[in-house]
Structure formats: structure tokens, C-alpha cells
């Protein structure tokens, strides 16, 4: 049985509701501020027992070795390693855009539409979130519980957070947009996901947690370098 038309109608309804609510909310958004517009998706301080960055957004060594085909070879979100069941918070005011929508990050995901045409996607969640499209959420609201990609919690528990725009067709680096003490968010841990791969022929590019390119889904690979390290 083909559920696609019904699913599409549901998505469009959710989209309309989310955009209208977001338009109403946008009037409450502070005017141009120096501070990043979004909060953290997890409570508390980083640390080995609470949460820490398992993989940055962008040109990571892990993504280079295990390229994400849809994401131009880059990691198109930030991974917060955290135990399964950790409460996930809305990073900003907005409206629920999708619950378990067709946006990847299995087994469960939530998308929230914000002002400025931005969307936040919370992936690899433990279970289907009890939210409905169009529902208004505020920054810091609990929206879901974290899980892991394989749905078994003993392999790689983490929250995958994306910031999308252009009607979900692109992702951008969450680091500049979230109020997180990123410098200490790795808790001193060094792994392939927290290391950026160097294009040895263009060695100053995409080396920092801030300087990373946007990703257009379906676009050509960006990091298939003739010479790279690591």
C-alpha cells in the first residue's frame, strides 16, 4: 500500500502550520544580536560522563574516510556523544516541522522550524517523539530522548544536530549559531571526528570548527582530494 500521497499532504500541512507559526514567532526574535541565536540541545556542562563532541560539522577525518554520499562527503551536523535516553532540548523558539520525516538520521528524528528560514534537525533519537507538526516549542523545551543510529544503544550513542535552510535542502555549520562553549566541548577527547582532514594542496582551508562549508544535499563531493592527511 502506497502511503506517499497521504504522507505528503501531512508534511505540507505541517510545513504550512510551522511556517505560519514561525512567522508569528519571528516578531519576538531579538533584533540583530552579536550572540548566536540558538541555545544548546543538551543540558549541563560537557564532560566524559555527560556529553562531548564526537564529531564536528564539516570536513572531518571520519567523514573523509567514511564519506556521507548525500552530504558532499562532509559531516553535515554536529554529533554530541551522550548516553541513550538523555533529554534533548529545543535549541530555539519555533514550531515542529516534522516528526520522523524523510530527512535521514534514523531511527527517529525531529525537525523544528525557526525564524530566519532555519530548521533544526535532531537525529538518531531513541523513540518517536510525542510532538505533532505545527506544535509550538520554546527554547529549552524537552522534545525527545537521544539514542543511537543502530537503535541498540550499545554502539555509538549520540545526538546528531543539523541546522538546515533553503527549505531543508542545505545544511550549515551549527557551531557559529549555538551558544555553546565549543572550545571545551570535546572534553579533551581527540578522535577522527574531532580532527579535520587537510587538503595537502590547499592546506589552510576548512581546518577550524568555524570555517566549514555549507552542504547542498545531492551536490558533488567537496573533499575528494588528490593528496590529503590524515
Amino acid at each position: 500500500m502506497d502511503h506517499r500521497p497521504a504522507r505528503r499532504r501531512g508534511l505540507l500541512t505541517g510545513l504550512a502550520a510551522a511556517l505560519l507559526l514561525t512567522a508569528l514567532l519571528s516578531g519576538r526574535t531579538p533584533a540583530r544580536a552579536a550572540a548566536p541565536p540558538f541555545g544548546a540541545p543538551l543540558a549541563g556542562s560537557p564532560g566524559p560522563g555527560s556529553w562531548f563532541i564526537g564529531q564536528w560539522y564539516g570536513n572531518t577525518a571520519w567523514a573523509h574516510d567514511n564519506p556521507y554520499p548525500a552530504g558532499q562527503g562532509l559531516h553535515f551536523g554536529v554529533d554530541f556523544n551522550t548516553p541513550c535516553g538523555t533529554t534533548v532540548l529545543a535549541i530555539g523558539d519555533g514550531a515542529v516541522f516534522a516528526v520522523d520525516g524523510p530527512y535521514g538520521s534514523a531511527p527517529h528524528s525531529v525537525v523544528i522550524a525557526h525564524a530566519d528560514g532555519l530548521f533544526s534537525l535532531y537525529g538518531h533519537l531513541l523513540e518517536r517523539a510525542t510532538l505533532t507538526p505545527g506544535q509550538v516549542v520554546r527554547v529549552g523545551d524537552p522534545i525527545a530522548r537521544s539514542g543511537d543510529p543502530a537503535g541498540r544503544c550499545d554502539l555509538d550513542p549520540h545526538l546528531h544536530l543539523e541546522i538546515r535552510r533553503n527549505m531543508m535542502r542545505e545544511t550549515t555549520n551549527p557551531v557559529p549559531l549555538l551558544r555553546v562553549d565549543w572550545h571545551r566541548a570535546t572534553a579533551g577527547i581527540r578522535r577522527n571526528g574531532t580532527t579535520f582532514v587537510r587538503d595537502l594542496d590547499n592546506p589552510a582551508r576548512w581546518l577550524t570548527i568555524v570555517d566549514q562549508p555549507d552542504v547542498l544535499f545531492g551536490g558533488a563531493r567537496l573533499n575528494d582530494y588528490p593528496r590529503s592527511w590524515p
Binding site: L12, A16, R32, A33, A115, D116, G117, P176, A204, V210
Partner: peptide
């Protein structure tokens, strides 16, 4: 209507430079 709302939203929002941090280049 949806596209109109989306366009209006996109047109009215502050430029992205407002939230872009300083880059070390």
C-alpha cells in the same frame, strides 16, 4: 500561499552575517 510566506520570511529576516562569527583566516 506557502511559498509566499516562505519568501516573505526569507526577505524579512536579518542577514546571515548577523550571526556569523569572526573567522580566523
Amino acid at each position: 500561499a506557502l511559498l509566499l510566506v516562505a519568501l516573505l520570511l526569507t526577505a524579512c529576516v536579518p542577514g546571515r552575517e548577523a550571526v556569523t562569527p569572526r573567522l580566523v583566516t
